[in-house]
Design a protein around this nucleic acid. Structure first.
Lengths: 192, 192
DNA sequence: GAACTATACGGACCGACAGTCCGTTTGGCG
DNA sequence: CGCCAAACGGACTGTCGGTCCGTATAGTTC
């Protein structure tokens, strides 16, 4: 990859990130806007990322990497506890990247399920589910758990306080994985 | 409402239904297509339904009414059993109305949660959840259960056989509502 | 049944936007 | 230094959702 191409790729991603963060709705951000903000021609965008969805996906995955690193499975901790932590982290991620995740998950045409980050988290969760309750339906249950933090559901419930979300996620994960563990909040308050 | 307006409204909905049923992707169906198929001017579409999402929503709700009638809660049957039945019915509905539900749930801009049918089902499910396990987080759990049959998830898992879906839904509902009943398939979990 | 009016009709028109094309520029190698 | 594959940029295109306004008609009143 030529040096200028690399440079441009990065400034496009940076510009797109800035624009999505500033917007309140994914389609306030056009490809022209991104090209302009990145100081780059439109052709460059499409040559590098193929199409709009490709760009959004690339940006999403770039940001998702941070999460993935922070969430390694540990064979010793109770799976339910880890699952709650994972879902909470995803919830926070969707709140922090509201417009971007909306863009990805509501991009007409491009399934939100066709991206590496999703596969990664799904596999992780499916393992936890299988560990907690056996392999039966573990695959589906992992999908269902992730669906509980779909970005437009998060959007729909946007004025719920954090505690209400925690209560919900605890109830959900507790039901599915068994709530042997206590899932006290890492940040201090407790759900009892 | 004038007679011609009424007539046109119906032929638009019918034409749109036909076109969505025949398509493989929601945005193969343009508003011009619908107008032409309905034998009506484009202005008529927009005057009646406001915008594309309005039309899709109207069609969706029209079809959803059939389901709603078939799914009344009965105070005597076990809630978990009723919940499974409801989710299975929704799954079948999404399979039968694949492109239409995709159109609704991926319509950029229009939240899939802002339609009467969703509210109806959510309220129903929330009651069942509350009956089965108390009011704690019942609202969220109902959302989460419904998210388990989101149309793009259904799409993503489109080649799963029916049995696998049933297994998954049984496991999910069984976990959340308690699987006192047996719902036709062994779940192998929490037999206490 | 004629005159009248509110309502509805239709399709030309508009603006926006994703995606393409091609003449020009440039990084990097021999 | 000279070459050329790779990359660039931005004018251009096609499509589509949505609007506008002159025309037609349902329904009502006398």
């Amino acid at each position: 990859m030529r040096a200028d191409a690399q440079r441009n790729r990065e400034s496009v991603l940076a510009a797109a990130g800035r624009l999505f963060d500033a917007a309140t709705d994914p389609d306030q951000v056009s490809m022209d806007d991104i090209a302009t903000a990145a100081g780059v021609g439109k052709g460059t965008l499409f040559r590098r990322f193929g199409d709009r969805i490709g760009l959004i996906r690339a940006l999403y995955e770039q940001r998702a990497l941070r999460l993935q690193d922070a969430l390694a499975v540990s064979p010793t901790r109770p799976p339910a506890e880890q699952a709650v932590e994972l879902l909470r982290a995803m919830l926070r991620f969707k709140l922090d990247n509201r417009v971007l995740t909306l863009a990805l998950e509501s991009a007409g045409g491009g399934s939100p399920y066709r991206n590496e980050a999703y596969d990664h988290w799904h596999a992780l969760l499916a393992d936890l589910v299988a560990e907690a309750r056996g392999p039966q339906a573990a695959d589906y249950l992992a999908h269902a758990l992730l669906a509980g933090v779909r970005s437009d559901l998060v959007e729909h419930l946007r004025d719920w306080p954090e505690a209400r979300w925690h209560e919900g996620l605890n109830a959900l994960v507790g039901s599915v994985l068994g709530d042997a563990g206590q899932f006290g909040l890492p940040t201090g308050h407790r759900a009892d």
